[in-house]
């Protein structure tokens, strides 16, 4: 079942953060919420994990899910090895064998097998975020929430992590909700894009992207078409 937000409004005291927002996040698709910095994008993720309650409106299909979350920072436990960091979120899996299997599988898919016994302190920023991605997929979730996880990385690293993420996702097809202010990230990843305005955030545009991901290369006509639409949405 898809996740539905119906006419949601959220206020923090006097501050209105979300105003009459309706969104539908399809199961097994990557939905991107694009908006300016500080517009309340993260609040949407917090609504889904029930960390924030809406004052008005209705949430549908939110209960009973198991979430993975990719944060802006990797949020690894510094005193656990890479492998133990993955195991940390596998408590719900009873069989030890299965846990081991999941760890090795996702460490391999993120090219981290050789580093499984390393402590995070010794890894570079990009590698740490890769561990966080492996952790998100190893966790038995059906929904992955992402809060600008590629922001702190340089362009080349960002591209390679996005590609790695897409190939992992293609094998699993979990429901993904990504919030970002980065147009390129949105175009490269999204099946559907929601564009939010400045605070109090409301939806200014939303559309599906039908072009296959491998054809959304910066500079290509498909890419430019989407980009100019998003530009207009965000500037106006």
């Amino acid at each position: 079942m898809s996740l539905n937000l119906h006419n949601i409004s959220v206020n923090f005291g006097n501050l209105s953060v979300l105003k009459d927002v309706s969104m539908k996040f399809e199961t097994g698709a990557i939905s991107v919420v694009l908006g300016p910095s500080g517009c309340g994008k993260t609040t949407i993720l917090n609504l889904l994990t029930s960390m924030v309650k809406a004052q008005t409106g209705k949430l549908e299909g939110v209960g009973g899910h198991n979430f993975s979350y990719l944060f802006q920072e990797p949020r690894l436990l510094p005193w656990l090895t890479v492998k133990s960091n993955l195991k940390f979120v596998l408590g719900e899996i009873e069989s030890k064998e299965k846990r081991e299997q999941l760890c090795s599988r996702f460490l391999e898919m993120t090219d981290l097998s050789d580093f499984s016994d390393w402590y995070p302190g010794k890894l570079s920023g990009g590698m740490k975020q890769r561990v966080a991605i492996a952790r998100a997929f190893a966790h038995p979730s059906d929904i992955i929430l992402m809060d600008e996880p590629f922001q702190a990385l340089d362009l080349k690293l960002k591209l390679s992590l996005i590609n790695q993420f897409i190939s992992l996702w293609k094998g699993e097809k979990r429901t993904v909700v990504l919030v970002t202010h980065d147009i390129h990230e949105a175009i490269t990843l999204a099946d559907k894009i929601f564009v939010l305005s400045e605070k109090p955030a409301s939806i200014v545009d939303s559309f599906n992207i039908e072009e296959p991901r491998e054809r959304r290369i910066p500079g290509s006509s498909e890419y430019l078409k989407i980009e100019s639409r998003l530009f207009r949405d965000l500037i106006e």
């Binding site: 979350y69 920072e73 949020r75 436990l77 656990l80 940390f88």
Partner: peptide
């Protein structure tokens, strides 16, 4: 608090949180 929030979202048990976040 970021680590605690992460553990909470990933539904890590309270016991595990004590032994693997609090104590270390």
């Amino acid at each position: 608090p970021h680590l605690l929030e992460m553990a909470d979202i990933y539904r890590v048990s309270k016991i595990k949180i004590i032994f693997q976040i609090y104590i270390p």
